[in-house]
């Protein structure tokens, strides 16, 4: 069986990739995708712990997190469409109407 650290390292890598995506990318869709990657990295960590510690709570947690991620994606895509209609762009750097 693949030992636990392998899964955890993969999950940490996914999380880092996701976080880097949110911070570096200027495209709202990519940023949003990166957030989903981060959530799934956390999911992977939870399911790994759940499997190796033999406690079932984690399984339940992961399913509920998936449902939440779907709800967030629904709201997020709606919001991106709204702002595209409003401004004609989804470049995050263009949204700077409010400063200081």
């Amino acid at each position: 069986m693949v030992p636990m650290p392998h899964y955890l390292i993969l999950s940490a890598l996914l999380f880092a990739i996701g976080a880097a995506g949110v911070i570096l990318s200027r495209n709202l869709l990519i940023m949003f995708m990166s957030i989903e990657v981060m959530l799934n990295a956390a999911n992977l960590a939870i399911i790994t712990f759940s499997r190796f510690l033999n406690v079932m709570d984690g399984h339940v947690f992961v399913f509920l997190v998936m449902a939440i991620a779907a709800a967030e994606a629904a709201v997020g895509l709606a919001m991106i469409i709204t702002i595209f209609r409003n401004r004609g762009t989804i470049d995050a750097d263009k949204f700077n109407l409010m400063k200081w």
């Binding site: 955890l8 999380f15 981060m38 990295a41 956390a42 999911n43 960590a45 939870i46 790994t48 712990f49 759940s50 510690l53 709570d57 984690g58 947690f61």
Partner: peptide, 8 residues
């Protein structure tokens, strides 16, 4: 992710 670590 923090909560998952606490859980683990």
């Amino acid at each position: 992710y923090g909560l998952s670590l606490l859980y683990g």
